[in-house]
């Protein structure tokens, strides 16, 4: 089935088996292997990518559902030599060990920053009607859709904090 997506700024048309997930389309058809498959069932976040700027689990989405969508993967955020600020911060804070969850964490963090800016609430938001403050608790909760079995959580928080800046 013909599907056209703009991936990391580049339009590409693929002829896909409808069963192909967005994740497998990226990894197997577009050679964008940065997005990882940890569970294939929406339970780990390793496959997180941004679709039209919004983070989703690409394993639980069919590629054909994304005809016309703009997809950003880890490869689209930054490259060696020209890292995205989040990538830079992850490197500096040692916010990963094995590195397998890392592209998902970074894409997720990028999506999260937008959600924070858009004042979306989380379960840590005490006052749903007030402006959201990016406390540590908010960031932890908002990053909870990305499991890191190496358990780099304190370092991931520090990295995101580097980018978000301190809050009062």
């Amino acid at each position: 089935m013909k599907t056209t997506m703009t991936v990391n700024g580049q339009a590409s048309t693929l002829d896909l088996d409808p069963r192909t997930t967005l994740l497998d389309a990226l990894r197997e058809h577009l050679n964008l292997k940065g997005s990882k498959k940890g569970c294939d069932h929406g339970q780990c976040g390793a496959c997180t990518v941004l679709v039209n700027g919004v983070r989703i689990n690409s394993c639980l989405s069919l590629a054909v559902m994304h005809d016309g969508d703009a997809v950003t993967t880890i490869e689209g955020l930054g490259v060696v030599g020209a890292l995205h600020p989040l990538q830079e911060a992850f490197l500096k804070q040692d916010a990963f060990q094995c590195g397998y969850c890392t592209p998902g964490q970074i894409c997720s963090a990028a999506g999260m920053l937008k959600e924070l800016a858009d004042n979306w609430p989380s379960q840590e938001t005490a006052d749903l009607t007030a402006a959201i403050v990016a406390t540590d608790a908010e960031i932890r909760e908002r990053m909870s859709g990305n499991i890191c079995r190496c358990s780099a959580y304190p370092q991931i928080l520090a990295a995101i904090r580097d980018v978000v800046g301190a809050v009062a």
Binding site: V54, R55, N57, L60, S61, S108, E115, S122, S144, G145
Partner: peptide, 8 residues
């Protein structure tokens, strides 16, 4: 769920 799931 998670933010990613809720976004979808």
């Amino acid at each position: 769920g998670s933010p990613q799931l809720r976004n979808k």
